[in-house]
């Protein structure tokens, strides 16, 4: 018969196995693949220390909320401006080079997402990429379910509108400068 310690370890190992993959992906999206493992390790360390407090019915949301907190601390500890500018430069370059293919589509959509408010981006990422439901999102964001639902609804509408607007037949100088030049001269 397992002791309490063994029982707790077994349950924690099951929790780790269930959620390690999605947390690695979650952290990787936000801090890059290289730092994702550190974020996830920090998250599970907190989870282990506070295992007794963890709500069994919302363990997943609790882990996401904790990972989000660990990521925020990580980002604060770095030189944020340098990292952001470096990331933006990478994004700009990728957008300009690959705008016509599948990668271009991905960057185009990500660019529209990045143009939304921080809260809109967050609820869309949690919903569409992390597949959290409204109740889980409310826990992660620290708001009511109603507020999470409203935020998600509005963010989805805004995102769709922005994406549509971004694809109206307006010349995009940054993507295809030669075409833009010709159409202006013809006009």
């Amino acid at each position: 018969m397992p002791t309490d310690d063994e029982d707790a370890r077994e349950r924690f190992e099951a929790l780790f196995t269930d959620h390690y993959p999605e947390l690695i992906r979650f952290a990787g999206r936000r801090v890059g693949r290289d730092s994702a493992a550190d974020i996830v390790a920090g998250t599970f360390l907190i989870a282990w220390r506070r295992f007794a407090e963890m709500p069994a019915d919302h363990a997943r949301a609790w882990l996401y909320a904790t990972a989000r907190h660990v990521i925020a601390n990580e980002l604060r500890s770095r030189n944020r401006r340098e990292r952001l500018s470096a990331r933006l430069e990478t994004t700009e370059a990728g957008w300009a080079e690959d705008a016509s293919g599948p990668v271009g589509e991905q960057l185009r959509v990500q660019r529209v997402l990045a143009g939304l408010s921080a809260m809109d981006q967050e609820v869309l990422r949690l919903s569409e990429w992390e597949d959290l439901d409204v109740a889980e999102m409310a826990i992660v964001l620290g708001c009511t379910r109603t507020a999470a639902k409203v935020r998600l609804h509005r963010a989805r509408r805004r995102f769709a509108a922005r994406l549509l607007a971004a694809e109206q037949p307006v010349p995009n100088q940054r993507v295809t400068p030669p075409v833009v030049t010709r159409s202006r001269s013809q006009a």
């Binding site: 993959p21 999206r29 959509v109 569409e128 990429w129 994406l163």
Partner: peptide, 16 residues
């Protein structure tokens, strides 16, 4: 359609 495209644009790769 926009949300489907957003899901397809998920930058995460691989299955840890």
């Amino acid at each position: 359609t926009a949300l489907r495209r957003l899901r397809d644009a998920d930058p995460a790769t691989g299955h840890p």
